[in-house]
Computed example of a mutant assay.
Amino acid sequence: MAFRKPKPVPFKSPGELEAMAAAGAVVGRALVAVRAASKSGVSTLELDEVAETVIREAGAVPSFKGYHGFPGSICSSVNDVVVHGIPSAAVILAEGDLVSIDCGAILEGWHGDSAWTFGVGDLSEADAELSEATRLSMEAGIAAMVDGARLTDVSHAIERGTRAAEQKFSRSFGIVEGYGGHGIGREMHMEPFLANEGKPNRGPLLVVGSTLAIEPMLTLGTTETTVLDDDWTVVTDDGSRAAHWEHTVAVTADGPLILTPRPE
């Protein structure tokens, strides 16, 4: 019986990766600007305007604006909102809020996609550890983005990163069900879907030039969520707080390369 070699995760040439990195750099700058503007009394609609200005001044276009009818340039998800929060003049940030900003940009036809969770002022210990656990889970997934690995090796690494964070912080975290990362390139969301947990050594093969958006979403409670009546906003079913970290990452001969770096 002959075994078929698994198909590769879609890959890009070195020049195409450079173009994706240029788009990713715009996203990184937009996220840094949004974080700097995220102060008590500021609305998430104002944050949206900050991001859109950075993106358009770079000659890029916000990926999210108009995507399946989404009205914003960012997803602004506060506290118990996991993902896809719609920027609004009615959502005013307050001290202690946990804010997740997801941002995408298109530059010369290529997409960058990244998300960052941070606090407004000082966070509670639990919220700070939740965000750090999500970051560590993402870092574990990024580290698994190597030539010759399989797609679910990344999923498994993210899950192991979450369990390691639970040990580190003596706290349990929920891995949000039904959401995960994705292929990315000339479109924002491409095959394959990347689960944030699962058994290793399955699915498509990672090769040099393969690109994925790696994005764990963790909660301080449930793994279950509900989409609100606006058809976008995803909230935790138990009202627990959620965090979301994401980078666009490429496989290279020298290891994983983050294509959405944030300027210091």
Rank of each mutant, 00 (worst) to 15 (best):
V42G: 04
G59R: 10
P71I: 00
D48N: 13
A115H: 04
G15H: 14
C75E: 10
A115L: 05
W110S: 12
P71K: 02
V54A: 05
L31K: 01
I55A: 04
V81R: 04
G112C: 09
K12M: 11
K39C: 07
V34Y: 02
G66E: 08
R56S: 06
V83A: 15
S77L: 03
L107D: 10
R56D: 02
S77M: 01
G28N: 13
A90L: 13
G119E: 12
V61I: 10
S114A: 15
H84D: 08
A19M: 13
D122L: 14
G28C: 13
R29G: 01
V32G: 04
G28P: 09
A94N: 14
A58E: 05
A36T: 06
F118W: 08
V78Q: 00
S73E: 02
T53P: 01
R29Q: 11
N79F: 02
I55E: 03
D48V: 09
K12R: 13
A94H: 13
L45Y: 08
V91E: 13
G66V: 04
F11K: 08
F118D: 07
D113R: 04
A51H: 02
A51Q: 00
V120D: 15
G72R: 00
A60G: 00
R29W: 00
V34L: 03
G66D: 07
V32H: 01
E57T: 12
Y67M: 03
V54E: 08
A89I: 06
S38R: 08
D80L: 09
T53C: 01
K39M: 06
A30T: 09
V81K: 05
S63K: 02
A33D: 04
S43Y: 00
A94I: 01
A105M: 09
E49W: 01
I92T: 14
S76N: 10
G119L: 12
A51R: 01
A60C: 00
V81M: 07
Y67V: 00
G112Y: 09
W116V: 05
F118Q: 07
E46Q: 11
A115K: 02
G96E: 10
I86M: 12
N79Y: 06
Y67R: 06
G96F: 08
A22M: 14
A89H: 10
A23I: 12
A25I: 07
G104A: 12
L98K: 10
V54Y: 03
G41V: 01
T117Q: 11
S73W: 00
T53Q: 06
V34W: 02
E108P: 12
E18P: 09
S63H: 03
T53Y: 02
E49K: 11
Y67Q: 03
S63A: 09
E16I: 04
G28H: 11
A23E: 08
A51K: 01
